[in-house]
Protein backbone atom coordinates (compact mmCIF):
# COMPACT_ATOMS: atom_id res chain seq x y z
CA UNK A 1 0.00 0.00 0.00
CA UNK A 2 2.65 2.49 1.14
CA UNK A 3 6.37 2.38 0.67
CA UNK A 4 8.69 5.08 1.90
CA UNK A 5 12.27 4.94 0.68
CA UNK A 6 15.12 6.99 2.06
CA UNK A 7 12.84 9.94 2.75
CA UNK A 8 14.62 13.13 3.76
CA UNK A 9 12.52 16.20 4.56
CA UNK A 10 13.30 19.80 5.46
CA UNK A 11 11.12 22.43 7.05
CA UNK A 12 12.35 25.98 6.53
CA UNK A 13 15.82 24.63 5.66
CA UNK A 14 16.01 22.47 8.80
CA UNK A 15 16.33 18.74 8.26
CA UNK A 16 13.50 17.01 10.14
CA UNK A 17 13.48 13.54 8.59
CA UNK A 18 16.66 11.74 7.55
CA UNK A 19 16.56 8.75 5.24
CA UNK A 20 13.35 7.23 6.55
CA UNK A 21 12.41 3.77 5.25
CA UNK A 22 8.96 2.51 6.20
CA UNK A 23 6.28 0.26 4.73
CA UNK A 24 2.60 -0.25 5.36
CA UNK A 25 1.08 -3.28 3.68
CA UNK A 26 -2.52 -3.42 2.52
CA UNK A 27 -4.86 -3.99 5.44
CA UNK A 28 -2.11 -3.37 7.99
CA UNK A 29 -2.13 -0.88 10.81
CA UNK A 30 1.35 0.28 11.67
CA UNK A 31 2.25 2.37 14.66
CA UNK A 32 4.78 5.14 14.99
CA UNK A 33 6.42 5.67 18.38
CA UNK A 34 8.98 8.24 19.32
CA UNK A 35 9.76 11.09 21.70
CA UNK A 36 8.44 14.62 21.19
CA UNK A 37 10.12 16.36 18.29
CA UNK A 38 11.26 13.11 16.68
CA UNK A 39 9.55 14.01 13.41
CA UNK A 40 6.51 11.71 13.64
CA UNK A 41 3.94 14.41 12.83
CA UNK A 42 6.22 15.79 10.13
CA UNK A 43 6.25 12.35 8.50
CA UNK A 44 2.44 12.22 8.42
CA UNK A 45 2.18 15.77 7.11
CA UNK A 46 4.74 14.96 4.40
CA UNK A 47 2.80 11.85 3.39
CA UNK A 48 -0.34 13.97 2.93
CA UNK A 49 1.65 16.50 0.90
CA UNK A 50 1.14 19.63 3.02
CA UNK A 51 3.20 22.67 2.06
CA UNK A 52 6.26 23.52 4.04
CA UNK A 53 7.43 19.91 4.17
CA UNK A 54 10.06 19.78 1.45
CA UNK A 55 11.19 16.39 0.29
CA UNK A 56 14.87 16.78 -0.57
CA UNK A 57 15.60 13.11 -1.08
CA UNK A 58 13.82 9.80 -1.36
CA UNK A 59 10.38 8.80 -2.57
CA UNK A 60 6.89 7.94 -1.43
CA UNK A 61 5.18 5.14 -3.32
CA UNK A 62 1.44 4.68 -2.78
CA UNK A 63 -0.54 1.93 -4.49
CA UNK A 64 2.46 1.46 -6.76
CA UNK A 65 2.58 5.08 -7.87
CA UNK A 66 5.20 7.66 -6.99
CA UNK A 67 3.24 10.36 -5.18
CA UNK A 68 6.27 12.31 -3.88
CA UNK A 69 5.37 15.38 -5.93
CA UNK A 70 1.60 15.07 -6.01
CA UNK A 71 -0.73 17.73 -4.58
CA UNK A 72 -2.70 17.19 -1.39
CA UNK A 73 -5.87 16.87 -3.46
CA UNK A 74 -4.42 14.16 -5.71
CA UNK A 75 -3.27 12.15 -2.72
CA UNK A 76 -6.72 12.45 -1.12
CA UNK A 77 -8.27 11.32 -4.40
CA UNK A 78 -5.99 8.30 -4.44
CA UNK A 79 -7.30 7.32 -1.03
CA UNK A 80 -5.17 8.91 1.66
CA UNK A 81 -6.89 10.57 4.61
CA UNK A 82 -5.47 12.29 7.68
CA UNK A 83 -6.37 13.33 11.21
CA UNK A 84 -3.87 15.97 12.27
CA UNK A 85 -3.17 17.08 15.82
CA UNK A 86 -4.11 20.70 15.42
CA UNK A 87 -6.36 21.30 12.44
CA UNK A 88 -6.91 24.96 11.50
CA UNK A 89 -9.98 26.97 12.47
CA UNK A 90 -12.22 26.94 9.41
CA UNK A 91 -14.15 30.16 9.92
CA UNK A 92 -17.37 30.22 7.93
CA UNK A 93 -17.16 26.55 6.89
CA UNK A 94 -20.02 24.71 8.58
CA UNK A 95 -19.44 21.08 9.61
CA UNK A 96 -22.59 19.84 7.87
CA UNK A 97 -21.72 21.65 4.63
CA UNK A 98 -18.26 20.10 4.67
CA UNK A 99 -19.65 16.61 5.33
CA UNK A 100 -22.05 17.14 2.47
CA UNK A 101 -19.22 17.94 0.10
CA UNK A 102 -16.92 15.10 1.11
CA UNK A 103 -19.32 12.21 1.67
CA UNK A 104 -20.75 9.94 -0.96
CA UNK A 105 -23.79 9.36 1.20
CA UNK A 106 -24.62 12.09 3.68
CA UNK A 107 -27.06 9.78 5.51
CA UNK A 108 -24.20 7.55 6.71
CA UNK A 109 -22.33 10.61 7.96
CA UNK A 110 -25.45 11.87 9.71
CA UNK A 111 -25.94 8.50 11.40
CA UNK A 112 -22.37 8.43 12.65
CA UNK A 113 -22.76 12.02 13.84
CA UNK A 114 -25.67 10.85 15.99
CA UNK A 115 -23.47 8.17 17.54
CA UNK A 116 -20.61 10.59 18.13
CA UNK A 117 -22.99 13.26 19.46
CA UNK A 118 -21.82 15.68 16.80
CA UNK A 119 -25.20 16.65 15.32
CA UNK A 120 -25.26 19.75 17.49
CA UNK A 121 -22.04 20.86 15.79
CA UNK A 122 -23.48 20.70 12.27
CA UNK A 123 -24.09 24.44 12.03
CA UNK A 124 -20.84 25.35 13.79
CA UNK A 125 -17.71 26.48 11.96
CA UNK A 126 -15.34 23.50 11.76
CA UNK A 127 -12.83 23.44 14.65
CA UNK A 128 -13.73 26.95 15.82
CA UNK A 129 -14.11 26.83 19.59
CA UNK A 130 -14.08 23.01 19.58
CA UNK A 131 -12.52 21.29 22.60
CA UNK A 132 -9.74 18.73 22.09
CA UNK A 133 -12.19 15.83 22.19
CA UNK A 134 -14.67 17.59 19.89
CA UNK A 135 -11.93 18.15 17.32
CA UNK A 136 -11.09 14.43 17.37
CA UNK A 137 -14.73 13.42 16.92
CA UNK A 138 -15.22 15.95 14.14
CA UNK A 139 -12.08 14.72 12.38
CA UNK A 140 -13.20 11.10 12.68
CA UNK A 141 -16.61 12.01 11.34
CA UNK A 142 -15.04 13.71 8.35
CA UNK A 143 -12.66 10.78 7.77
CA UNK A 144 -15.57 8.34 7.88
CA UNK A 145 -17.45 10.45 5.33
CA UNK A 146 -14.36 10.57 3.15
CA UNK A 147 -13.74 6.81 3.57
CA UNK A 148 -10.06 6.67 2.53
CA UNK A 149 -8.12 3.43 1.97
CA UNK A 150 -5.13 4.59 3.96
CA UNK A 151 -5.50 6.62 7.11
CA UNK A 152 -2.93 8.74 8.90
CA UNK A 153 -3.81 9.30 12.55
CA UNK A 154 -1.74 11.69 14.64
CA UNK A 155 -2.27 10.93 18.32
CA UNK A 156 -5.98 10.20 18.05
CA UNK A 157 -6.35 9.79 21.83
CA UNK A 158 -4.69 13.02 22.95
CA UNK A 159 -6.99 15.49 24.67
CA UNK A 160 -9.76 12.90 24.98
CA UNK A 161 -11.16 11.95 28.39
CA UNK A 162 -11.13 8.35 29.60
CA UNK A 163 -14.82 7.80 28.94
CA UNK A 164 -14.75 9.13 25.41
CA UNK A 165 -11.63 7.20 24.52
CA UNK A 166 -13.61 4.00 24.26
CA UNK A 167 -16.06 5.57 21.84
CA UNK A 168 -13.21 7.06 19.87
CA UNK A 169 -11.25 3.80 19.80
CA UNK A 170 -14.26 1.84 18.61
CA UNK A 171 -15.01 4.41 15.91
CA UNK A 172 -11.44 4.11 14.63
CA UNK A 173 -11.73 0.34 14.71
CA UNK A 174 -14.94 0.52 12.71
CA UNK A 175 -13.33 2.90 10.27
CA UNK A 176 -10.40 0.54 9.70
CA UNK A 177 -12.03 -2.85 9.67
CA UNK A 178 -15.79 -2.41 9.46
CA UNK A 179 -16.61 -5.24 7.08
CA UNK A 180 -13.82 -7.64 8.00
CA UNK A 181 -14.89 -10.91 9.53
CA UNK A 182 -11.47 -12.26 10.48
CA UNK A 183 -7.76 -11.47 10.50
CA UNK A 184 -7.29 -12.84 7.01
CA UNK A 185 -10.17 -10.77 5.76
CA UNK A 186 -8.69 -7.65 7.37
CA UNK A 187 -5.43 -8.11 5.49
CA UNK A 188 -7.30 -8.47 2.23
CA UNK A 189 -10.07 -5.89 2.54
CA UNK A 190 -9.34 -3.75 5.58
CA UNK A 191 -8.00 -0.24 5.46
CA UNK A 192 -4.38 0.53 6.09
CA UNK A 193 -3.26 3.00 8.69
CA UNK A 194 -0.24 4.68 10.16
CA UNK A 195 -0.93 5.77 13.71
CA UNK A 196 1.12 7.96 16.04
CA UNK A 197 0.59 7.20 19.70
CA UNK A 198 2.41 8.18 22.87
CA UNK A 199 0.27 6.39 25.40
CA UNK A 200 -0.64 3.36 23.34
CA UNK A 201 -4.24 3.66 24.61
CA UNK A 202 -5.62 3.45 21.10
CA UNK A 203 -3.98 0.02 20.74
CA UNK A 204 -6.60 -1.36 23.14
CA UNK A 205 -9.14 -0.96 20.38
CA UNK A 206 -7.38 -1.55 17.09
CA UNK A 207 -5.20 -4.37 15.85
CA UNK A 208 -1.67 -3.08 15.34
CA UNK A 209 0.59 -5.08 13.07
CA UNK A 210 3.94 -3.38 13.15
CA UNK A 211 5.62 -0.70 15.18
CA UNK A 212 8.31 1.80 14.22
CA UNK A 213 10.39 3.90 16.56
CA UNK A 214 11.39 7.26 15.22
CA UNK A 215 14.06 9.33 16.96
CA UNK A 216 15.80 12.46 15.64
CA UNK A 217 14.15 12.04 12.27
CA UNK A 218 15.42 8.50 11.76
CA UNK A 219 13.79 5.10 12.12
CA UNK A 220 15.61 3.40 15.01
CA UNK A 221 13.84 0.12 15.06
CA UNK A 222 10.78 -1.78 13.98
CA UNK A 223 8.98 -4.74 15.40
CA UNK A 224 5.93 -5.96 17.28
CA UNK A 225 4.13 -2.82 18.42
CA UNK A 226 2.89 -4.15 21.75
CA UNK A 227 6.31 -5.41 22.76
CA UNK A 228 7.77 -2.08 21.73
CA UNK A 229 5.26 -0.18 23.80
CA UNK A 230 6.07 -2.24 26.89
CA UNK A 231 9.79 -1.66 26.37
CA UNK A 232 9.37 2.06 25.83
CA UNK A 233 7.29 2.28 28.99
CA UNK A 234 10.01 0.48 30.94
CA UNK A 235 13.17 1.93 29.44
CA UNK A 236 12.23 5.04 27.50
CA UNK A 237 13.72 5.85 24.12
CA UNK A 238 17.32 6.19 25.34
CA UNK A 239 17.90 2.47 24.97
CA UNK A 240 16.68 2.54 21.35
CA UNK A 241 19.06 5.32 20.48
CA UNK A 242 21.96 3.56 22.17
CA UNK A 243 21.07 0.31 20.45
CA UNK A 244 20.96 1.98 17.07
CA UNK A 245 24.33 3.65 17.68
CA UNK A 246 25.84 0.29 18.55
CA UNK A 247 24.76 -1.08 15.20
CA UNK A 248 26.36 1.68 13.19
Amino acid sequence: MLEINNLTVEIGGRRILKGVDLDVEAGYTNVLFGPNGAGKSALLMTLMGFSGYNVVEGEIIFKGEDITNMSVYERAQMGIGIMTQRPPNMNGVKLHDLLNVISKDIKDAEELAETLDMVRFFERDVNVGFSGGEIKRSELLQLSAQNPDFILLDEPESGVDLVSIEQLGNTIKHLLQKDCKCAGDRCKHGKSALVITHTGQVLDYIEADRGYILCNGTVMCSGNPREMLTEIKEQGYEECIKCKLMKI
Binding site: S51, A76, I82, L98, Q146
Partner: peptide, 8 residues
Protein backbone atom coordinates in the same frame (compact mmCIF):
# COMPACT_ATOMS: atom_id res chain seq x y z
CA UNK B 1 -4.96 22.27 2.25
CA UNK B 2 -7.16 21.09 5.10
CA UNK B 3 -10.05 20.91 2.65
CA UNK B 4 -7.88 19.48 -0.13
CA UNK B 5 -6.90 16.67 2.24
CA UNK B 6 -10.61 15.86 2.38
CA UNK B 7 -10.68 15.48 -1.37
CA UNK B 8 -11.64 18.97 -2.56
Amino acid sequence: EYLMARGL
